[in-house]
Structure formats: structure tokens, C-alpha cells
């Protein structure tokens, strides 16, 4: 199996990347800010702190995928080091999946580190204001972190798909950011389009079909966002989690398979 060496190299390269330190320091600063902001809240201090913590985790994960992940994948293509790699006894799918595996490891590690800080920050706030954590559950917080991680993995797979056919890493970055924006908006847009009278807008049947088409094409990232539920300690039904995880893994698999197909056929200049 030549999957692991590629994964290991990718992971180590990612760890060595200075950007990770930046992301971690940024996350720490946000968590300190969260602690201060939570002190301004009268009733639901816990909710605000959990909001801040989970958003920090999601944002640092996003930065990691966009600015470290895409570079790791695209650098080989940009700098033409891909020739050296592909001249080795390693198939293109193996190379691609190895890279992906390394990136997944990197995401999980970074999220774990930032989550550790986040949990410490929440715990600190909880000790400072113990009376304001009425509806609070660690289980739903960790569930939310897990789903965020899955959505980041999905986004990475999508960025691999883009990288497999566009020529520069910058284009991959733009396409991935667009997918992220669409992915988080599509749920709300679909709801709006399907019940336009509620907000008093008019939509043509064509728009409805277009949005419904886009809904199946782009990832629905809102499904992975249970931060509000986690912040209020509400339970999310097991079936919802099950379907979301299935969807996430399925979408990731489809994106990676398509990426492999395109990448195998690709000719390098």
C-alpha cells in the first residue's frame, strides 16, 4: 500500500506549515474574546460561550481547509513536483487518496487541538458563572464538533475535485469558497423559494427548478450545523444525525471518486 506514505508526508507537511500556528493563535484570541463577551450577557452566558467556542472551531477549520489544504494539494501541480511523484511506483488514485487521507488527519488533529482550548474556555466560563448554564450538555457540543469536522472533510473532498481539473490553486480556492457560501445558503434559499409568499417575493417556476437543481449539486452544509441546538443543550434525534452522517460520507465519496476519474485522465503539460 503506497497510500500511507503519501498521507504521512502530507500530514507532516501540513503540520510544518506556519499557517497552523496562526490559526491556533487566532482561535485562542477568539476564545478569550468569547469569555469577555459572555460576561456581558445577563441570562444565557453558557449559550453565548458555546456559540463563540463552536463558531471558533468551525472558522479555524474553514481557514485550515482553504489556506493549508488547498495549498498542499495544489502545490504539487503548481510547482510541477507532481512529475517526480508520479514517476514513482504509485498510481494516480493512490496519490490522490493518500493526499486526502493526510488532509483528513490534519483536519482532525487541528480540530482536536482547537476543541481542547474551546472546552477549557467553556469550562472556565462555567466555573466563573455557574448559575447561568441552565440548559447545557457536553454531549451535544461534542456532537456538533464532530459534524463540523465531517463538513470540513466534505469541503476538502470538493476542493480535491476542483483541483483535479482546474489549472491553478487560486481557481480551486475561489471555487471552494463559492461552494462553501452556496452550501451554507442553499437550505435557506430553497426554503425561501418554495414559500415565497411568506416574505412577499415573486419567483418564476424556472428559478424554483434552478434552485432545486443547485440543491442537489452543491453540498447542503447547513445540515451539519447544529450549533444552535448544542448551545441550548437541545437533543437532536438520532435519525437526523444518522442521515446527515450518511449524506456527508456519501457526498465525500462521490466527490473523491469523480476527482480520481478526472485526475487519472488528466494530461500534464
Amino acid at each position: 500500500m503506497s497510500l500511507w506514505p503519501v498521507a504521512a508526508v502530507t500530514f507532516l507537511e501540513g503540520i510544518r506549515n506556519r499557517a497552523i500556528y496562526g490559526i491556533t493563535i487566532f482561535a485562542l484570541l477568539l476564545l478569550i474574546a468569547g469569555n469577555l463577551v459572555a460576561g456581558m450577557i445577563m441570562q444565557e452566558v453558557g449559550k453565548v460561550m458555546v456559540d463563540m467556542a463552536l463558531s471558533t472551531i468551525a472558522l479555524s477549520g474553514l481557514l485550515l481547509v482553504l489556506f493549508v489544504g488547498i495549498n498542499l494539494m495544489a502545490k504539487d501541480l503548481d510547482r510541477r513536483t507532481i512529475y517526480m511523484v508520479l514517476s514513482r511506483p504509485i498510481s494516480r488514485p493512490q496519490y490522490l487518496f493518500g493526499k486526502f487521507l493526510g488532509m483528513v488527519l490534519l483536519i482532525v488533529t487541528t480540530i482536536a487541538i482547537v476543541s481542547l482550548f474551546a472546552v477549557a474556555a467553556i469550562q472556565l466560563t462555567k466555573i466563573t458563572y455557574p448559575d447561568y448554564f441552565a440548559h447545557f450538555s457536553w454531549a451535544s457540543i461534542f456532537l456538533s464538533i464532530a459534524l463540523t469536522t465531517l463538513s470540513l472533510i466534505l469541503l476538502t473532498a470538493l476542493s480535491f475535485l476542483f483541483a483535479s481539473f482546474v489549472s491553478t490553486s487560486f481557481l480551486t480556492l475561489v471555487l471552494t469558497i463559492l461552494s462553501y457560501l452556496i452550501g451554507h445558503g442553499i437550505n435557506d434559499v430553497k426554503a425561501l423559494i418554495e414559500a415565497p409568499q411568506q416574505v412577499g417575493i415573486q419567483v418564476t417556476p424556472f428559478t424554483v427548478k434552478l434552485v432545486q437543481g443547485v440543491y442537489y449539486l452543491f453540498p447542503n452544509l447547513s445540515l451539519f450545523d447544529i450549533k444552535t441546538q448544542a448551545a441550548h443543550g437541545l437533543t437532536v434525534p438520532l435519525a437526523t444525525i444518522g442521515w446527515t452522517v450518511t449524506y456527508g460520507l456519501g457526498y465525500t465519496a462521490i466527490a473523491m471518486l469523480l476527482a480520481t476519474l478526472i485526475f487519472s485522465k488528466r494530461e500534464f503539460p
Binding site: D51, M52, S55, Y180, H184, L221, D225, K227, T228
Partner: peptide
Amino acid sequence: ALEFDGLASD
């Protein structure tokens, strides 16, 4: 607000 509804609410 993307995925940061809670934060935007705060």
C-alpha cells in the same frame, strides 16, 4: 450569517 447564526444573534 452562514453557519454563524448563533454568533450573529449574540
